[in-house]
């Protein structure tokens, strides 16, 4: 009854949505999906914490240190993250420092995002009126407590949208680990594609990425739209 493979629609389904291929390779894809999530939940806290540390150091430092920190942030932001990854994974072994693919990916993505998160937190802290810190200090609060209880909560509220947006970009960036042969979702899909000779695994991986990230992307879009409308 059904038309043969000469039919373009059937041809499309056979190539891009072939169930037999999917059944064969889904354990590989699921394992890759798990590794993508693991890579994200290891890297995101490290990058956020180190970015915050850089921003706090900036806000408490003198002019000379500030200037150095801004240069450091800009250099980290200027490198394409894949360049950092290649430098770490392929360049460092010449010094006898060999990291495995997972560690190299965590280090590269965390370094790059230290720059991004550092800049976002820095802008947030700078946007808090200085009177806030002065008033808290006048009340006798210790400097650390002023920072934690007065400055940072206001600063973070001001930059929620860019923070969320950057966190989303970080998770998307984990796919570059595929280029140093870490079998995360994209790499697994490519390996699977070599077994099935059709792009169905790529379609499945794209759908998995989309399912994982879309709710988060919607939330980020809402935050950004609100930020644009209210000015912060």
């Amino acid at each position: 009854m059904w038309p043969g493979p000469a039919d373009p629609v059937q041809d499309l389904i056979d190539n891009f949505a072939d169930l037999d291929s999917l059944v064969r390779v889904y354990p590989l894809l699921l394992q890759g999906f798990g590794l993508t999530i693991l890579l994200s939940i290891v890297t995101l806290p490290i990058a956020t914490a180190s970015g915050l540390a850089v921003a706090v150091a900036y806000s408490t430092a003198g002019t000379g240190v500030r200037r150095m920190l801004v240069v450091a942030i800009d250099i980290l932001r200027a490198f394409p993250v894949l360049v950092l990854l290649v430098l770490i994974f392929y360049g460092l072994p010449f010094l006898g420092l060999r990291l495995n693919a997972f560690a190299a990916a965590v280090l590269a993505i965390a370094l790059n995002n230290t720059g991004y998160f550092g800049e976002i937190f820095r802008a947030g802290i700078e946007a808090v009126p200085p009177g806030q810190g002065e008033a808290a200090a006048a009340l006798g609060l210790h400097r650390m407590r002023v920072l934690i209880h007065v400055i940072l909560p206001q600063a973070i509220r001001k930059v929620t949208a860019p923070l969320a947006s950057n966190a989303l970009e970080l998770v998307k960036t984990t796919s570059i680990a595929s280029l140093v042969s870490l079998p995360e979702l994209l790499r697994s899909a490519r390996v699977a594609q070599e077994q099935t000779y059709n792009p169905t695994p790529l379609v499945a991986a794209s759908l998995l990425f989309f399912a994982l990230l879309w709710p988060f992307a919607r939330w980020v879009a809402r935050l950004e739209r609100r930020a644009l409308a209210t000015g912060h």
């Binding site: 796919s175 792009p199 790529l202 991986a205 990425f209 989309f210 990230l213 879309w214 992307a217």
Partner: peptide, 12 residues
């Protein structure tokens, strides 16, 4: 296109 990683799009 805002949600999918760029590398996934290029590979696809």
């Amino acid at each position: 296109f805002r949600t999918l990683p760029q590398l996934v799009i290029l590979v696809f």
